[in-house]
Design a protein around this nucleic acid. Structure first.
Lengths: 100, 100
DNA sequence: AAGATATATCGGAATTTCCCGATATACCAA
DNA sequence: TTGGTATATCGGGAAATTCCGATATATCTT
């Protein structure tokens, strides 16, 4: 896990916001309940709607978070669902104390 | 404390390296023993020597780390000494779990 | 197969970061 | 005061990031 890549992923207001939303998917993205559950997280379209950014930007940002290991994705049909990888945050929290 | 600014400060290999060196100033900067102790940390010149970067870059990088609250400086005569602010790292470690 | 929908990728303009050399400022010593 | 040393700040070229619109790909529906 590259530390610089990890911190760069977190160095953006929008990406931090997305991570915060993904902490409580049901309340942050009530719209998704109409076509899916939340077991695998939230689909890109829902995040795009809430963020107000373009689809391409949101897709790119989610890819950055995933490359850093902070979220994981699941493809289901034409949807890709993203959810937080909580283990990564716990690792990071410890890494701050031991490695940085 | 601005989270984005904090993570940006950590998003650079050289700055992470400086922070690592400052964890063990005596062993990382033995050269400083010749003109000063380590109570207040390490002076800019020592860090510059070890990093191989220019003086202006190192000074700038230390300022970035200080603005983020990760280090604190003490001016003594013509020297400025920098040392880690360990409390900030503990805060950050907790912040990762609660806020991010 | 053709059209519709969801997401990913590409190309790029604007902004920021990286790191430099030059210069300014602060302090010390003679 | 003059000169030397340590650090900070300024201006800038190169590279990276931000976010966009356009396009490609994958999947579903009919």
């Amino acid at each position: 896990m590259d530390q610089v890549e990890l911190f760069k992923a977190l160095s953006n207001k929008t990406r931090l916001q997305i991570l915060a939303w993904l902490k409580e998917p049901e309340t942050s993205f009530p719209g998704q309940a109409e076509h899916a559950g939340f077991e695998d997280g939230v689909c890109v379209g829902q995040i795009q709607l809430k963020s107000g950014l373009t689809q391409s930007t949101v897709s790119e940002y989610l890819a950055i978070l995933q490359r850093a290991g902070l979220v994981q994705s699941t493809r289901k049909g034409q949807w890709t669902y993203y959810k937080r990888n909580e283990a990564a945050f716990e690792q990071l929290s410890k890494l701050i104390l031991s490695d940085v």
